[in-house]
């Protein structure tokens, strides 16, 4: 989380809104530990990671949607999930990611 702070500050200075994605469950092997975070700006930029690159682009789309709707969302990615098959989680595990819009500070 701490490592994302300079980026969050920069985005806020640029008047961008921010969504945060957090890994909130892991089944089997997953590339990053529970609690790993990625921040997404309203311009579609990202910082940090939730899966080491496997599902990031899908999470960015969901984050932009969360910023539009203002509503958080619990997402599942993994081999059992059809979306995840197309997105792909290389290690074969399943992860749940919570995406939420951050307040404007």
């Amino acid at each position: 989380m701490r490592e994302l702070m300079p980026t969050l500050e920069r985005w806020r200075n640029q008047q961008k809104r921010i969504a945060l994605a957090t890994v909130v469950r892991i089944y089997g092997s997953a590339p990053l530990p529970l609690g790993s975070k990625m921040a997404i700006s309203s311009a579609g930029e990202m910082a940090g990671s939730v899966s080491g690159g496997c599902v990031e682009s899908a999470v960015v789309q969901e984050a932009l949607e969360a910023l539009r709707s203002g509503r958080p969302k619990l997402l599942t990615y993994g081999i059992a999930d059809e979306v995840a098959q197309s997105v792909g989680l290389a290690c074969g595990g399943v992860i749940e990611v919570f995406v939420e819009p951050l307040p404007e500070v």
Partner: peptide
Amino acid sequence: MAGTDASIYRQFEEAVRKGR
């Protein structure tokens, strides 16, 4: 995020930034 949650989140971020 509702108003109270926003203030709580800000405190969380502040603590993380200061390494608490």
